[in-house]
Design a protein around this nucleic acid. Structure first.
Length: 701
DNA sequence: TCACGTCGAC
């Protein structure tokens, strides 16, 4: 019999004439290796029918394997062949189940297994690992348990190693770590796969510490490991910041010539990134001979996690130049970077790209978008995304609630909190940070008190230091300084510097000198003093007319050489380009243009009644330079640059690394009025939406 | 036939 001359390669050029005179010894080679397209498959199938060879189970099985597993798009074809088989045996079923799993049709794989049982087909040791894999992927514990029962029926306790390994993985994937561990402990012989299965199980459940611990145990016992082991372990090293073990793996990989393993190198890149060594990660990345989307994403994420977001975005550009298609995961890190930078235009472009590429709006991607819009001061964007998401979880709700709170829409944040409860989504500790900060922004003192109590009473969530901090802010902001002070004194956990600093800020706003003094003492006791804290007290003295004390604090700071707070830095994005300004920085490429624009801007608002407030000037500035010093604060430079580089009426968006100072706040209010611009200024803590001479924060921040 | 790398709210 001749298989005629027909195209056996994708080039459609006849490449081989294959002669089959009898039942082939090697149907696998014949069918699998020569069948490269669906068309090949068709022709071979036809021949097998004609020659009745299809009735040989081994032949049918191999044809099915071609269709179901090797060819990318022939699952339906495989199913039609399978349905034509009179009484498919276990091999045929096994191939089909594997094929479905291969195509990520896990649910169908389990259904086919059910069908196999109903038709009383003999199960074998090849059936179980496959179908258990489907259960693992779906987290289908009940089905997994039933299959476990079947296994007991078929094999008793002495089932095959493959089967046991997949049982471990199934239980672990379904969150049943103890059962997984029991199976592991009771296995008489464990191979590398066994260890890898349990390691992967711990990893999947976030038990990274256990992954590292178990690997050390493996080494003590002298158990062999392989590249897959190292992937799990190096990933775990990143999560628990075990740089030492991570570096050991890196050296091992180098010494054993494993640099070609893409997944392994990617896990090392991830590990270095998470340990804060992104430059080392970069070196590994640069040495790779092939980089896929995961490798790129891992490095982009590394940069964003150490707050080098501009470099993260640069890398994203390079990724596109390298023609590597980003996926949902890449976009999450990119959006995170845009959010951190306040790069609204770039992020909007990312969203457009997501739509264009028809990427799935997964819960994580949606949440990243909500957070991005909120952090760019565009809360309408957050709500729009939230409404469009096909499914949401506690992260998505919390991101929205937090976004509403920081954008000054406290009441709306509480409405969403109510809605969330109606939808039976349980809030967690972070959600409560969001709603408590909403209460403080909206001045809802009683509501805040109630929620704080309800948190532990109704939800069983123990308040953390952040929750106490929120309560101090709620009380202090409302002028209840004494109550806030007593609240701190009665806290069951030690207050930290942040809590006392919050009270100090309230004392300044409400002119409470006595508690203000004590608050600063406590801040200094808990943390090396920062100039910003001392300036708060100095300004508090000045505000009640105690100028001598104000001066004394400033002089003390000079004498002691108090640590300066990080230099002020503001970012503005124009046409997708991010410009960065530092206070009194002359080295900027647009320096002259910027300083001229700033002076012009200041002149214009002065004639509208602006009076410089130099209390926040640099301490080392000479008296006559103080005005110049505050007028060159980074946010003023960025706003001035925005004014000359955008068309009239455009909203100006600036984000700053520190809290905005009194003088800049006053000036910006006037700028919004004089230049008829909306200005959205994001500072370290919250948003200021300036419009027609006033600010959304009502001058308290 | 089983195990493996990138991502979200303080």
């Amino acid at each position: 019999m001749v298989l005629a001359t027909h195209p056996l390669s994708p080039s459609k050029t006849p490449t081989a004439i294959t002669t089959i005179s009898e039942f082939p010894h090697n149907p696998k080679t014949l069918i699998l290796h020569q069948c490269k397209t669906t068309k090949d498959l068709n022709q071979i199938h036809a021949h097998l029918i004609k020659t009745r060879l299809l009735h040989h189970p081994a032949v049918a099985e191999n044809l099915l394997e071609s269709a179901a597993i090797l060819l990318p798009d022939a699952m339906d074809y495989a199913l039609s062949i399978f349905r034509q088989i009179d009484r498919p045996d276990s091999s045929a079923y096994n191939v089909m189940i594997r094929g479905l799993i291969h195509k990520k049709l896990n649910h169908n794989a389990i259904l086919l297994f059910k069908n196999m049982c109903e038709n009383s087909v003999q199960l074998d040791e090849f059936t179980f690992p496959s179908v258990l894999k489907a259960c693992s992927r779906l987290g289908a514990l009940r089905e997994g348990e039933q299959i476990h029962a079947q296994i007991m029926k078929y094999f008793g306790f002495n089932s095959d190693g493959f089967v046991q390994n997949t049982l471990i993985h199934m239980y672990a994937s379904c969150g049943e770590l103890e059962i997984a561990r029991n199976v592991f402990d009771e296995m008489p012989r464990r191979d590398v796969m066994t260890w890898n299965s349990i390691l992967a199980g711990y990893a999947k459940n976030g038990r990274w510490d256990e992954v590292v611990r178990l690997f050390r145990e493996m080494q003590e016992l002298g158990v062999e490991f392989d590249e897959v082991t190292l992937i799990s372990v190096s990933t775990a090293c990143g999560r628990v910041a075990d740089l030492e073990l991570g570096e050991w793996i890196d050296e091992y990989v180098d010494a054993n010539g494993l640099k070609g393993n893409l997944a392994l190198i990617t896990s090392l890149i991830d590990m270095y990134g998470k340990c804060g060594q992104v430059d080392t990660a970069r070196r590994l990345f640069d040495q790779m001979d092939r980089r896929d989307v995961v490798a790129w994403s891992a490095l982009i994420s590394g940069y964003s996690q150490v707050n080098r977001c501009r470099e993260a975005l640069d890398l994203f550009k390079k990724m596109q130049e390298a023609n590597v298609e980003p996926n949902e995961v890449t976009m999450v890190s990119v959006l995170y970077s845009c959010a951190a930078l306040g790069a609204l235009e770039t992020g909007k472009w990312v969203r457009f790209y997501i739509k264009k590429k028809k990427m799935k709006l997964t819960v994580i991607l949606g949440t990243a978008l909500i957070d991005f819009y909120a952090k760019c001061g565009s809360i309408e964007g957050s709500i729009e995304v939230f409404d469009k998401m096909p499914s949401r979880n506690v992260f998505s709700w919390t991101a929205l609630i937090q976004g509403l709170a920081s954008n000054g829409q406290g009441k709306k944040a509480l409405e969403y909190f109510k809605l969330m409860q109606e939808k039976n989504i349980d809030p967690n500790d972070v959600t409560f940070i969001g709603i408590l900060s909403a209460c403080s922004h909206a001045g809802l003192v009683d509501e805040g008190r109630k929620l704080f109590i309800s948190m532990s009473n109704d939800y069983g969530i123990e308040p953390r230091i952040e929750h106490y901090g929120c309560m101090v802010d709620i009380l202090g902001r409302a002028g209840l300084i004494q109550e806030a002070y007593e609240f701190i004194k009665n806290m069951p956990i030690q207050p930290n510097a942040v809590v006392w600093r919050t009270l100090l800020a309230s004392c300044k706003a409400h002119k409470n000198v006595r508690i203000g003094e004590e608050s600063l003492k406590n801040v200094i006791r808990l943390e090396p003093a920062h100039s910003g804290d001392c300036i708060l007290l100095s300004n508090l003295y000045a505000s009640v007319g105690r100028h001598d004390d104000a001066l004394r604090v400033r002089n003390q700071m000079k004498e002691k050489g108090t640590n300066k707070t990080a230099p002020g830095c503001s970012l503005i994005e124009l046409d997708g380009e991010i410009y960065e300004f530092f206070a009194e920085d002359n080295r900027h490429p647009h320096s002259k243009e910027v300083y001229n624009a700033t002076e012009d801007m200041m002149r214009k608002i002065k004639s509208a009644g602006y009076v410089p407030n130099v209390t926040d000037a640099r301490l080392d500035a000479e008296e006559e330079d103080k005005e110049a010093s505050v007028s060159h604060h980074s946010e003023k430079l960025a706003i001035a640059f925005g004014l000359i580089r955008t068309s009239p009426g455009t909203t100006i968006r600036v984000s700053k690394n520190l809290r905005v100072c009194t003088d800049c706040h006053n000036a910006t209010k006037l700028i919004s009025k004089v230049f008829k611009r909306e200005i959205v200024l994001r500072d370290r803590n919250r948003f200021h939406h300036f419009k027609q001479g006033s600010c959304s924060c009502n001058d308290y921040w």
